Computed example of a mutant assay.
Amino acid sequence: MNEAVQSSEKCPLLIVIVNYRTADLTINCLRSLVEEVKSLPGTQVVVVDNPSGDNSVEKIGRAIATEGWEGWASLIAAEHNGGYASGNNLAIRPALQSPNPPDYYWLLNPDTVVRPGALKALVDFIAQRPEVGIVGSSFEEADGEPWPIAFRFPNVLSELDSGLRLGIVTKLLSRWVVVQQMGNEPAPIDWIPGASMLIRREVFEAIGLMDEGYFLYFEETDFCLQAKRAGWSCWYVPQSRIMHIAGQSTGVTVRNARPKRLPQYWFDSRRRYFMKNHGWLYTALADAAWIAGYSLWRFRQLIQQKPDMDPPYLFQDFLRNTVFIKPGMPESDQPSKLAVNP
């Protein structure tokens, strides 16, 4: 951890980047932050390597030294890969425990490039609205194509729509569909991607750190839900622009191409989210809704000879991970508030 974060000096903002085998992208992200950190003097950046098992630590550490970023950037090599939430918490926990903890914490993916003014736009917005606990950016593709997306919380009807994929049903269920197209003005939203999520310190003090029972996926959804239940709102701020290349570490969320087979931890995270927040019966209804919708989709796909762009073995893997087959919580941890203090 950079000494400035743990010292008595005031660090207004801590930026956390969790790296896993994406050293070159992480360095590009750091390079895009050079001018941004100047807009908020005292800002610190911590890169957590989760551990990659390649030369990421050496490569990122060397870049920090040779580029002259040591005054504001530092590197932590995690002892084990506990996932996205665990990696972020490794940097956030000691900062919260420092004599003068930062007011804000910005989670950034390593496969992002921060556009000019993105940091200031988020900080200015949240600083002027004490009821807002979390803010996020608008995204764009590598070629500059806008990707103005934020999200609603998953629910039974959204699971039906996710499986069915029928335009008229999506329109009828538009109030419940997870993916939400955003406009050019700031707007309240259920949750935003952890690729760019700025969090007020008081949110952590109210609900604790991110749930390390999630290895990857659904952890930011869960965190935003806990914040909302504690009275904090979440906002989309399109004036903050971030270039994001999705799926670089996992290959799961790539756009415009068929993704890889969904890993087990995706199904564990989904089940954990529904079980933790809604209980067994609701999770069973959500599972049944997706199965029914997807079965109808597969029949329509066969009749209309539509291309298959789903991950391999999606239906079989989903069935194996329903609460009808696995009725309990994933074996990681039972739901609990991960305290700020040990």
Rank of each mutant, 00 (worst) to 15 (best):
V5W: 11
C11F: 07
I15R: 01
I17D: 03
N19I: 09
R21C: 08
L25Y: 10
T26G: 09
C29L: 03
C29I: 01
R31V: 05
S32T: 14
L33A: 11
L40Q: 07
L40R: 10
G42E: 07
G42S: 11
P51G: 12
G53I: 04
N55S: 12
S56C: 06
K59G: 00
R62H: 15
A63R: 02
I64Y: 03
A65C: 02
A65L: 09
T66N: 05
S74N: 13
L75T: 01
A77H: 02
A78V: 01
A78T: 02
G83K: 02
S86V: 01
N88C: 15
A95W: 00
L96F: 00
S98W: 00
P99G: 04
W106K: 14
D111H: 02
P116R: 11
Q128G: 15
R129P: 15
R129A: 02
S138F: 01
E141D: 14
P146R: 04
R152T: 14
F153Q: 12
V156K: 01
R165E: 05
V169M: 11
V169L: 14
L172V: 04
L172M: 11
L173T: 15
V179W: 04
G183E: 09
N184R: 10
P186F: 11
P186Y: 09
I189R: 12
W191L: 06
R201A: 15
V203I: 11
V203Q: 08
V203E: 09
F204E: 04
G208Q: 06
L209C: 13
T221D: 09
L225P: 10
A227D: 05
A227N: 06
K228L: 13
R229C: 06
V237N: 10
S240C: 10
R241Y: 02
R241N: 03
I242Y: 00
A246F: 03
G247C: 10
G247Q: 01
V252Q: 13
V252L: 03
R255K: 14
A257C: 15
R258D: 01
K260E: 10
K260P: 10
F267R: 12
S269H: 10
Y273H: 04
F274V: 10
N277E: 14
N277V: 13
Y282E: 06
A284R: 07
A284V: 06
L285H: 07
A286N: 05
A288R: 15
I291T: 06
A292N: 07
S295W: 11
F299P: 01
F299Q: 08
Q301N: 13
I303H: 03
Q304S: 14
Q304C: 12
Q305S: 13
K306H: 01
D308M: 09
D310F: 02
P311Y: 00
P311C: 03
F315Q: 07
D317V: 00
F318D: 08
R320I: 02
N321I: 05
T322W: 08
F324S: 03
K326S: 06
G328H: 06
S332P: 02
D333W: 06
P335V: 09
K337Q: 09
L338Q: 13
P342W: 02
